[in-house]
């Protein structure tokens, strides 16, 4: 029973990490209709930035996460118009061109990380690293709990932004129809650029927590890109709400399979289940977008 409860906690906390990773990705797909291959790259760069801030300036990740958020908001905002330009290109299949474009960005990030930080794994220390909370037989790692809480905070903040602000209204209008939103006076290009900025900021912030929980090296990007894709597909591409359900479901499934069936089969069963769900509900768990 103790192991069962611990597995429950482990699963929920893994879910938190998956939600953190995917929430911004969903937003950018919902609004820009871009499948951003660089999602793992932003995660990796967020982790490395936190690594630099903690080693060079001694800034704890729980403070540097705000700096990382602000920095990547600006970077994403700067890159946003380019993504928008590629996505709305008059040439054939701009959706595929955007995918290829973000893949190029991802490769650039990976090469840059190799050059700057070499191949070795780096861990990011925080005041909460290795700290835990014991509740009877269950141990709750505080870093993972923080990531989970942050995922909830991200989701809440995003919902407030989307449903309680004029900017959010413009974002939702864009998600529904770019042309109509433009005709109603929404500055499509500008809002799209800010959405991309919010996405990179959220994903890089998730990277700070992920690097603190695990470690970061230039090859982790592809791993997180895959995870973000799978959570997003299960959630229903573009559905921010669905990410919460899908992230938790995948986290719990992975934890229980690894504990009671065998870790070797965890990803096989998780992704097998994902394909089955998609056969039954191809629009994702909530069946709708933003």
């Amino acid at each position: 029973m103790d192991l069962f409860l611990q597995t429950l906690v482990n699963g929920i906390l893994i879910g938190g990490i998956l939600i953190c990773l995917t929430i911004g990705f969903q937003l950018t797909f919902g609004v820009l209709h871009v499948i951003d291959f660089a999602v793992g790259g932003w995660t990796m760069l967020g982790g490395y930035t936190a690594y630099w801030l903690v080693t060079l300036a001694g800034i704890d990740p729980f403070i540097s996460i705000f700096l990382v958020f602000a920095l990547f908001l600006l970077i994403g905002r700067g890159l946003g118009p380019l993504i928008y330009h590629v996505r709305t290109s008059r040439y054939a299949r701009p959706d595929l061109m955007a995918l290829a474009f973000t893949f190029g960005i991802f490769l650039f990030m990976r090469g840059g990380a190799l050059w700057l930080w070499s191949y070795n794994s780096r861990s990011v220390d925080s005041v909460l690293s290795g700290q835990f909370l014991s509740l009877g037989p269950v141990t709750i790692p505080l870093m993972r709990l923080s990531a989970f809480l942050l995922a909830m905070l991200f989701s809440l903040g995003l919902f407030i932004l989307l449903y309680r602000s004029r900017f959010g209204m413009a974002v939702r209008a864009l998600a529904q129809n770019h042309d109509h939103a433009g005709l109603m006076g929404v500055d499509v290009k500008r809002v799209s650029a800010w959405v991309y900025g919010i996405y990179t900021a959220l994903t890089a912030s998730a990277g700070v927590l992920i690097a603190t929980i695990y470690s970061v090296n230039p090859s982790v990007g592809i791993r997180y890109t895959l995870f973000a894709f799978f959570v997003a597909v299960l959630a229903g591409l573009g559905s921010v709400g669905g990410v919460l359900v899908a992230g938790l479901a995948l986290g719990l499934l992975e934890a229980y399979v690894a504990t009671y069936i065998g870790a070797r089969y965890s990803l096989l069963i998780v992704f097998g289940t994902l394909y089955l769900v998609l056969l039954v509900a191809p629009k994702g768990v909530l069946g709708r977008g933003i």
């Binding site: 611990q6 992975e254 990803l267």
Partner: peptide, 19 residues
Amino acid sequence: YELFPANSDLSAIVSKLKS
């Protein structure tokens, strides 16, 4: 004796070892 995929989260494995 347990093998796991390279991308696994290790919390389940560590919990079993702890047990």
